[in-house]
Nucleic acid binder design. Structure first.
Lengths: 108, 108
DNA sequence: TTTCAATATCGTAATATTGCAATATGAAAA
DNA sequence: TTTTCATATTGCAATATTACGATATTGAAA
């Protein structure tokens, strides 16, 4: 069907899946890592950095933004995108928690 | 197109995207969290735990397994699935690294 | 060996995603 | 005001994903 039955899962499960989904594309991973690697926050050249057409990049940026992973502020003619700290923090803590639980278990 | 242009991205970007994609579904998040919550490693009842049909669950398990997030060993008639520590560890470290870089930057 | 229980695979319908050309928008420069 | 540059939106084709009924498969019990 292609449609995810979100209504039968908890809000937490749906939210986690949505955030991870926003990152689950090589272009979007590349965008996040590029934003981290650039000194300044001048981010208009993401399009030049990526091997994709401008509309495609714009679409990926939109997805990252609506998932809360990046934020963009208008800077005159161009836009300044950067990674949202709190989103990354939540992801980090999520996997840290799982990691701890695994250390306790040691099953297989 | 629906087809991701993996050939134009680095192997690292593709790999990260693939692992995250495997987790980017509420059912698969639910499976991982269920495996963590269960004391023993008797995991045949994932199907009963999830509000999805058996073939659907089986498909999700397959995706998690082929992404290296869970591993399954045959236990007589049923199968024992559990979360793979090293996969979670890598994800944890990935977000820890990003988090550190963000602390240094403090841009927007 | 037959049967049963647990899981996997196949086939397929409905929907989502990806990518881009064409086009629109919006702000600054000329 | 016109032009130009940066970015967003629209529309659409190709492909991927999700879900499940039907049907294998496989090992254990009877």
């Amino acid at each position: 069907m292609g449609i995810t039955k979100t209504d039968v899962f908890t809000e937490h499960h749906n939210k986690m899946a949505a955030v991870l989904k926003a990152l689950a594309h090589p272009a979007r991973i590349a965008i996040v890592e590029y934003l981290l690697s650039v000194d300044a926050c001048i981010c208009g050249d993401i399009v030049n950095e990526l091997p994709l057409a401008q509309p495609t990049v714009s679409q990926h940026l939109k997805e990252l933004k609506s998932a809360g992973i990046i934020k963009g502020s208008i800077e005159g003619k161009s836009i300044c995108y950067c990674v949202d700290e709190s989103a990354i923090n939540e992801l980090m803590q999520y996997f840290q928690t799982i990691n701890q639980k695994l250390n306790i278990k040691k099953c297989c």
